[in-house]
């Protein structure tokens, strides 16, 4: 995003008192991530310090400082999915994609993450692919499922 575009975004919702988390979520919703070099401008627009912004940015697992791959796969590791052996689904994804949790494939196709519960426990193990929840996933379905996300 260009500097002027970020400025427009930051002035769109002037609010008192300033809300750092909400602002960062809005930046991420527009850009897909929060660029590190945008911190000074975000801090200025909210009249807080850069350290305040960096503190919030580093605290929340769902705020990102880098773009994800074209597809984002989140594997649920909540207790209910664990009980349904969802860890095997994750193992299969790691093996198939040859990446670890938190990494993106070298071709930029898939980012793999884990999450602790998406609230679809009764139809677990669950995966979230680009925001769509897929339930009752079996490890042997992984290769075919990945084919759909190029």
């Amino acid at each position: 995003m260009s500097k002027p575009a970020l400025a427009v975004l930051l002035t769109r919702h002037p609010r008192k008192p300033p809300n750092i988390l909400q602002t960062l979520l809005e930046v991420q919703a527009s850009l897909g991530f929060v660029p590190a070099d945008a911190l000074p401008e975000i801090a200025r627009s909210l009249d807080v310090t850069e350290a305040d912004v960096a503190g919030v940015l580093s605290y929340y697992p769902d705020l990102r400082t880098a773009r994800t791959g074209r597809h984002l796969i989140r594997v649920c590791l909540g207790e209910s999915c664990m009980a349904n052996h969802g860890a095997k689904v994750l193992d299969r994804l790691r093996a198939h994609l040859k990446i670890e949790v938190g990494e993106t494939t070298r071709d930029g196709r898939v980012t793999l993450e884990r999450t602790y519960c998406v609230g679809t426990c009764p139809v677990g193990p669950s995966l979230v692919v680009d925001g769509d929840v897929i339930g009752r996933v079996r490890p042997d379905q992984i290769p075919a499922l990945l084919e759909e996300y190029q």
Binding site: G78, E79, S80, Y116, C117, G119, T120, P122
Partner: peptide, 11 residues
């Protein structure tokens, strides 16, 4: 913020 895994009644 229904974070307890295994619960979804709030959702």
């Amino acid at each position: 913020d229904e974070g307890d895994a295994g619960t979804y009644c709030d959702r």
